[in-house]
């Protein structure tokens, strides 16, 4: 996906920077990256530093940055949709063919917008618009970040039992961060933080989105 984006814009002054938020260390990301063997920059962020700096709360989230290093679109969902919620094992539903198609359409729509921006500047927000969409930072979030960072550090140093309360406190202080919760959660057999507790948490969102759609045409 990002390789296609990068390839299709190789004649433009453009770069994809994909940051893996991997609190357990780079080896978690290795198989995924090696499968793609990307030519774009693929970086490993064991401390979730990028999420902290930009106020990101989920993956995938993206920021568009212009040639002068200015943010022209603050963090927003990058092509993912809530269709996956139909697969909730608690409701025994499943994504229909129409859901699957809609999911692909949304992703294509998003990446078409990225390409339009790179080629023509379309969809870039002006300063006031961009500032309005900046994430809000609270003291609770700042304290959550500090707890999360210590928890991740302890876990990487084989001190998981000590890490637990810091990770739990981080999630309690910043409940909107799926990054913090999922990076702290147990993984299922497939290696995803998508066990029963994940689905309980998703269900408790009710009408709120898991992946808020980007404010782009068609969404």
């Amino acid at each position: 996906m990002w390789q296609d984006l990068s390839d299709s814009l190789k004649n433009e002054e453009f770069a994809v920077v994909a940051v893996a938020e991997e609190g357990k260390g780079p080896e978690q990301a290795r198989p995924w990256i090696e499968r793609v063997n990307p030519t774009y920059l693929s970086l490993i962020d064991v401390e979730h530093r990028v999420a902290s700096l930009y106020g990101m709360v989920n993956v995938p989230q993206s920021v568009w940055i212009d040639e002068e290093g200015h943010i022209v679109r603050p963090p927003e969902t990058a092509g993912a949709t809530d269709h996956f919620r139909r697969n909730d094992p608690g409701t025994e539903g499943a994504m229909t063919d129409a859901d699957l198609a809609a999911r692909v359409t949304a992703r294509d729509l998003y990446y078409t917008a990225v390409k339009e921006w790179v080629k023509t500047g379309k969809h870039a927000l002006d300063g006031d618009q961009a500032r309005q969409k900046l994430p809000k930072f609270t003291p609770q979030m700042a304290l959550a970040d500090a707890n999360f960072r210590l928890g991740l550090w302890l876990r990487r140093h084989d001190r998981s039992a000590e890490a637990e309360p810091f990770l739990a406190e981080a999630s309690r202080l910043h409940p909107d961060s799926w990054n913090i919760w999922r990076q702290s959660a147990e993984l299922n057999e497939a290696g995803f933080a998508a066990g029963p507790k994940f689905w309980d948490r998703v269900r408790s969102l009710g009408d709120k989105p898991y992946y808020p759609p980007p404010d782009l045409p068609g969404f």
């Binding site: 770069a15 920077v17 994909a18 940051v19 990301a29 993206s62 040639e67």
Partner: peptide, 15 residues
């Protein structure tokens, strides 16, 4: 280091 280029900064994770 990428100043002078448009940058699509995106996050992902294995989990």
């Amino acid at each position: 280091e990428l100043r002078g280029k448009k940058v699509f900064l995106t996050t992902w994770a294995s989990w």
